[in-house]
Design a protein around this nucleic acid. Structure first.
Lengths: 247, 247
DNA sequence: CGAAGCGTTGAGTATAATCAATTCTGGTGG
DNA sequence: CCACCAGAATTGATTATACTCAACGCTTCG
């Protein structure tokens, strides 16, 4: 028997993630592999989908980091979510007429392009896999909701630490980083846009978090000197991430 | 030929909403009616689903208003969305193990309880209707995203007016209120929790909006003296609501 | 070397929260 | 009819939080 979090299909983060919901049979794994047949590469800083684009089509992020955001008239932007390997990009634009948000890569990435038709095929021929994909979509939505709660009701310190804890938990699920340390290749400007604050303010918040030894964000690495204290401090619950296999 | 926004199945808001996406045949309408067979009533202020509940099962809101929210440790809460007739409540809890949010009614309401099984039946037997439901779910998600953008990056005045414009547009779609005037049976406390501010601050913001004649929120009614100016002021786009029938 | 991007710091300002009251409103019961 | 109450809306004064503007240090890269 293979150990958990070890690779089944050569580091397929999506397969690992989906199996946190329910195990997949060989047939489903093959189908999942097939769904990701059409590979593409993008350099860091590429626009993958832009707000208002009418092309239908989604991507599965296989390697690297990306983010989704919306721009406002005054030029500012709000980052909706940071996307990690195994995440879908732009599923919603499969059904809405235009994409309601933009996607940009944060590192060099590898993605698979997925068409609407391929998705319907999965729904018809592999309903169990389809349910897993819907589960993943529900989980993503729950993350956006938690993000909204953070921005609306948590103070800057709490909010920042909470966000970094969530990232850590998500990475852990797909087998990257330990619980209390992970590589985080994003600039303070990106993090600030995700958290709804100024870069300058975020910088001060990060310094404070470092001073009180809750979180250290430095040189592309996030470290929690004491994860439990950090979780306690921010009220991090993680039930909304719905980890662990269903009974 | 029936006029748009007129009732087909005795004021079924969901049917009206779904037809903004694609027309439904008699068969699908009957199925939709059947899905809503199990009616229930709740008084204003009832908890319909609570955060952490493990019961699976969703509701379709038929009449009245409700809202979804999450509570934080310090007792404050963030309202995720206001729900209007034709909205689903708690679909996500069909797939996640526990509900990640709570639902409370804002007025007396009528709902229909929907089981997972009934949903799967629709997917199997009426895929076209299922697509419409997925569209509605995508649209709801797009609204949460826009909400996040508002709370993260818009100032209080802009944010408040934008939110009220969105509510107006949503109500208009299901045939309630004109574009520039609608009944809005919620307290300032609720609105403040939705917008991520204090009741006191919201009160001042509402006064300002009234003074500059952008929005009047008073005695349970919202009025826009000049909708276009309000839309211009807030940068209200409404493309994310994806109204209008698909080509 | 200069330019660009990122991170950092300081000083002053704006925005929103907190604390403390007061008014207005629609019920309720005498 | 009125006195009373609870909830909602409103106002003022003060404090905290986050933003703006301005500048500087440190790399990296051409």
């Amino acid at each position: 028997m293979r150990r958990k979090h070890q690779m089944d299909h050569d580091e397929d983060a999506l397969a690992i993630k989906l199996q946190a919901f329910q195990p997949l049979g060989e047939d489903e794994k093959a189908r999942l592999e097939d769904l990701q047949r059409h590979r593409m590469q993008f350099a860091a800083g590429s626009e993958v989908v832009y707000q208002g684009q009418t092309n239908r089509g989604a991507y599965i992020l296989r390697k690297g980091w990306a983010c989704s955001y919306k721009r406002l008239r005054d030029g500012s932007r709000q980052i909706i979510d940071i996307h990690l390997p195994g995440d879908f990009l732009g599923v919603r634009s499969l059904l809405l007429r235009t994409s309601d948000q933009s996607f940009i890569t944060l590192t060099d990435v590898e993605v698979s392009k997925v068409t609407v038709e391929a998705m319907w095929d999965v729904f018809r021929a592999a309903p169990k896999l389809a349910v897993s994909l819907l589960w993943a979509a529900s989980r993503d939505e729950a993350m956006v909701v938690e993000h909204l709660v953070s921005v609306g009701r948590r103070g800057a310190l709490e909010r920042t630490a909470h966000f970094l804890l969530e990232l850590g938990a998500r990475l852990h699920l797909i087998g990257c980083g330990t619980g209390d340390n992970y590589p985080c290749p994003i600039s303070q400007a990106v993090l600030a846009d995700a958290l709804g604050m100024t870069t300058i303010h975020l910088n001060r918040v990060l310094r404070q978090l470092r001073e009180i030894k809750l979180v250290v964000f430095r040189e592309g690495t996030v470290t929690f000197p004491d994860v439990h204290r950090a979780a306690e401090f921010t009220g991090f619950d993680l039930r909304y991430l719905d980890h662990g296999t269903r009974p």
